[in-house]
């Protein structure tokens, strides 16, 4: 275990080296001291992702656009999926954006520790900085692709309203969900590389278990809907559509979703902090 305390007399931080023991609490102060590192890691992720790509950052625009095109053709036009009285492209895109935010953040954070093994085995910093920075990088992508959504909204004459402010807590919930699951998976992946093979599959199943291509109404209300709400992305997507487009407001499912995220996050942090001490030895 390591910790830093500041001495009053000469301002030199004293670092203690001790054997790792159990739950150490979340050292937010230390994490804050390393905020610039988190910033630079995020910046590196974004920079590197679009380097040597001819289309560069426009990939963040093209990806949701092309996906929505396919969804509209298959689910909107061919299968005539109901879309809560919204034009299907707008209906799908308003779910696809928070979903892609979540999926990108989850995918990248789950392999982040192994991908940064060279850092972990050589230099000390709070290990949380790594999954955190991948989640932040996904947020930047999200903000870029949000422009597509704005364009589509204007095309269908949906004007922004004050209700849109609810988007902020809902985006936060999506990020926390990704972080919570990402903490679990990234720490597990350090020891068991099976995880990185499972992640794409998990994401695929999870997508169909979330109301992206279909509306939440097709799940019967009552106990089934509550069970469905155990998937935190249900609350996120339902809330996102409501805050942006004024569909039916979130109900109990939102609370259940938030509760699940909280449990996942706290347990994920616990597991991560407990395993953190051994990352350098086993990664």
């Amino acid at each position: 275990m390591t910790e830093i305390t500041r001495e009053n007399k000469d301002q030199t931080p004293v670092i203690f080296l001790r054997p790792a023991k159990g739950w150490l609490g979340l050292d937010l102060r230390e994490l804050w001291r390393y905020r610039e590192l988190i910033f630079f890691l995020t910046w590196r992720d974004i920079k590197v992702r679009y380097k040597q790509a001819i289309l560069g950052v426009s990939w963040a625009l093209l990806q949701p656009l092309l996906t929505v095109l396919i969804f509209t053709m298959i689910f909107g036009i061919l299968l005539k999926t109901p879309s809560q009285n919204l034009p299907y492209p707008l209906f799908a895109l308003s779910a696809l954006l928070p979903w892609q935010l979540f999926a990108t953040a989850l995918q990248r954070s789950s392999v982040s520790l192994v991908g940064n093994a060279n850092l972990i085995t050589k230099i000390y910093f709070p290990r949380l900085a790594i999954p955190l920075s991948t989640v932040f990088a996904a947020l930047v992508d999200f903000l870029v692709s949000f422009l597509v959504l704005l364009g589509v909204m204007i095309y269908y004459r949906h004007w922004p309203s004050l209700n849109n402010l609810w988007l902020l807590p809902i985006i936060l919930l999506a990020l926390l969900t990704a972080l919570a699951v990402g903490l679990w998976l990234s720490a597990l992946n350090v020891q068991y590389r099976d995880v990185q093979h499972m992640v794409p599959f998990i994401i695929q199943v999870w997508m169909y278990a979330s109301p992206i291509v279909y509306p939440i109404d097709i799940i019967p209300a009552g106990p089934w809907r509550l069970l469905y709400g155990l998937n935190p992305m249900v609350g996120v997507i339902q809330g996102f559509r409501w805050a942006l487009l004024g569909t039916e407001p979130p109900d109990m499912t939102m609370l259940i979703s938030a509760g699940v995220v909280l449990i996942l996050l706290v347990s994920g942090l616990y597991y991560f902090r407990r395993m953190e001490k051994t990352f350098a030895d086993i990664v």
């Binding site: 931080p13 004293v14 670092i15 054997p19 850092l119 230099i123 000390y124 001490k277 350098a280």
Partner: peptide, 28 residues
Amino acid sequence: ILSRVTDPTLGFGEIRGRVGSLLEVGTG
């Protein structure tokens, strides 16, 4: 252990100040 990359299994240590490591230059 001195650069806090890994923790000791037993024992105790105290370090006053920042440890700069040229352990592997160019890390990152």
